[in-house]
């Protein structure tokens, strides 16, 4: 197995630390393997658990560019891979009309790299250095696109009929994320390493808050982490993401709240819960959630 990059576990760990991304050994191992075996890494998990962030962190670790492809319904090759710059080609033909060029020459001109609009996938493949390719929310793309992705992911080359096959100059590090809006095909899963990224536990969430909102005092930090942990166990339409929890922590800091009580929570809960229904559901449970949070804290 050729290793273009000298990857060590320490490199991954150091990179995560530098990027201030706190996580579990499991995630670390998966990232390390993805880099070492040079296979795409498929990350699944609830929204807001930090899947996309991993792509960014990886780019930071490797000190390289992040190429991001956001998937959506109806995304097709023209938008993901390449497209001919039709307008520019026409202009060229117009310009060439004055000079007496043969058609074969003209056509050679207009089907050259200069007239190709690079989309993220092609860009990642032809980049002069190893890049991180983040294919975000693959589950939102259509199945046809997934099938097409297989080709790119297994061979890392693209064939453009007019130009021939373009092989990857450097194998990009590929990270795919999915929210499981639909089941991905087995063929795609087979080609990827897999990581399920869930919300962090109370401990790690506390550390994350400490890292990102250092002004918040320790007791409150713990309360927040435990409260949110309990909140996520409720059957909500949208569970609070880590980013929202951080927002909440900042808000508590700004409002100078020293301790979580029913009033404080009620005032600020709309920072973590974004559905009327969820708010109502959680409203009745604030007391018991706070109680359990406090009990475990002592």
């Amino acid at each position: 197995m050729s290793q273009a990059l000298d990857v060590t576990r320490d490199l991954v760990r150091g990179g995560l630390e530098r990027a201030r991304y706190l996580t579990t050994p499991r995630v670390e191992t998966a990232l390390y393997l993805a880099l070492a075996i040079e296979k795409p890494l498929l990350i699944e998990g609830p929204a807001g658990a930090g899947k996309t962030e991993i792509g960014k962190v990886l780019a930071e670790t490797l000190q390289t560019e992040l190429v991001r492809l956001q998937c959506y319904e109806g995304l097709d090759e023209a938008k993901a891979l390449y497209e001919w710059n039709y307008q520019k080609q026409l202009l060229r033909i117009q310009a060439d009309r004055a000079s007496d060029l043969q058609w074969s020459e003209v056509s050679q001109h207009i089907f050259s790299r200069d007239y190709l609009l690079e989309r993220p996938l092609l860009h990642a493949i032809t980049a002069p250095r190893k890049v991180v390719l983040l294919i975000d929310e693959v589950d939102k793309a259509d199945e046809e696109f997934e099938a097409f992705l297989l080709e790119v992911l297994s061979d890392f080359q693209v064939s453009i009929p007019e130009l021939g096959t373009v092989p990857a100059r450097h194998r990009p590090v590929v990270v795919l994320t999915s929210n499981r809006a639909r089941e991905l095909s087995d063929a795609l899963k087979r080609r990827c390493l897999y990581l399920y990224l869930d919300f962090p536990g109370v401990e790690i969430e506390q550390q994350i808050i400490r890292l990102k909102v250092p002004e918040l005092d320790a007791a409150l930090r713990e309360q927040v982490a435990r409260f949110v942990y309990g909140l996520r166990k409720l059957d909500l339409r949208k569970v609070p993401s880590i980013a929202e929890v951080l927002d909440w922590a900042r808000a508590l800091r700004t409002l100078n709240i020293r301790e979580l009580d029913t009033v404080a929570v009620r005032q600020t809960l709309n920072l973590v819960l974004k559905h009327e229904e969820d708010l109502r559901k959680a409203d009745g449970k604030i007391g018991s959630l706070l109680a359990t949070a406090a009990r475990r804290a002592t």
């Binding site: 050994p25 499991r26 191992t29 998966a30 393997l33 993805a34 075996i37 890494l41 498929l42 699944e44 998990g45 087995d186 899963k189 087979r190 990827c192 390493l193 897999y194 990581l195 399920y196």
Partner: peptide, 18 residues
């Protein structure tokens, strides 16, 4: 534990199978 995570990343393709 590292071995477990490593094998999981390569063999396990659905958290439901955890």
């Amino acid at each position: 534990e590292v071995l477990r995570d490593g094998l999981a990343a390569t063999l396990l393709k659905d958290e439901a199978d955890r």
